[in-house]
């Protein structure tokens, strides 16, 4: 039901042991050369060139490959060749598991099919974003899209996503659960819910038909847990896209009646989630 990577799926299904997965990962680490190592192995650059580029990276926010070109150690054509060779010789985890004897090729095929079916609900759809959000666009789109998917799959709520709006204040609501994303993206993820939506979330998370007797602490906790589930899965999906993220535990915010001000140096994008006339649900991103 969650975003997974293939190795985890296999261990979860009891198809391979954690120990054989580790052996396969070690084989991958020995086999799959990093860009610099591959460029050295292909005779284009020296180890000293890599060290010089690494030192230059401390003051320049550039990928190693681009920097090696800028420093004149690699030509653009050579960089293309290195990347193409990396892709062509890449040992995937499934192949590594076959090589270490943990899976047969036939079983690998079967489990790959099962894995594709398991992860099919998480194939990302396009989401409209502000034009200025032009870096890591796919990761931002995935964050919003995965929120929609989790609302459907985990909460079972029928909704219509609204067009994004930019705001300097996030409107007041019953409560907001928030989580900070750090790493390649720096943002605060917020989910703002009315009291009715909060109860719907609590019913889904606690798997209870009635939550009228529950106290505020547990009701709020269920919204934080939902945000934790969304953001954890965003981090997992981002890692598959080559985007490294980390999260801190979620927090609850009670915005004043005039709304929650967006901190200085942040821009706020709100994604309305239309769930019915009497209830309000919004997802927002405070982006640095």
């Amino acid at each position: 039901m969650a975003v997974k990577f293939f190795g985890q799926f296999l261990v979860e299904q009891d198809a391979v042991t954690g120990e054989s997965l580790l052996h396969a990962i070690e084989l991958q680490e020995r086999t799959n050369l990093k860009l610099g190592e591959m460029a050295v192995a292909m005779g284009f650059i020296t180890q000293q060139d890599i060290e010089t580029a690494h030192s230059a990276q401390l003051s320049k926010d550039m990928k190693l490959g681009d920097l090696l070109v800028e420093l004149g150690f690699l030509s653009p054509k050579q960089l293309e060749e290195v990347i193409a060779h990396q892709k062509a010789t890449h040992l995937y985890i499934g192949e590594a598991l076959v090589k270490v004897g943990a899976l047969t090729p036939e079983k690998l095929e079967q489990y790959l099919e099962a894995f594709k079916a398991d992860q099919a609900p998480y194939v990302a759809n396009r989401v409209e974003l502000p034009a200025w959000l032009n870096e890591n666009t796919a990761a931002w789109e995935m964050t919003v899209d995965l929120t929609y998917k989790m609302i459907t799959r985990v909460l079972g709520i029928q909704f219509r996503p609204g067009k994004f709006v930019e705001a300097s204040v996030l409107s007041s609501n019953h409560m907001i659960a928030a989580m900070d994303l750090s790493g390649d993206l720096s943002a605060r993820y917020l989910l703002s819910v009315s009291a009715g939506v909060q109860k719907t979330i609590a019913k889904a998370i606690l798997k209870e038909d009635n939550v009228d007797h529950e106290d505020d602490e547990i009701l709020e906790d269920t919204v934080m847990e939902f945000v934790n589930i969304v953001c954890g899965n965003v981090v997992a999906k981002a890692s598959q896209m080559g985007v490294t993220l980390d999260i801190n535990p979620p927090i609850t915010l009670h915005p004043p009646s005039d709304g929650l001000a967006v901190p200085d140096n942040y821009r706020c994008v709100v994604f309305p989630i239309h769930v019915g006339d009497d209830e309000v649900m919004e997802m927002a991103l405070f982006i640095k």
């Binding site: 990577f5 990962i25 954890g232």
Partner: peptide, 11 residues
């Protein structure tokens, strides 16, 4: 954990 699908964390 919600981070189970992150390869590095799982490993």
């Amino acid at each position: 954990t919600s981070l189970g699908g992150v390869g590095d964390k799982f490993t």
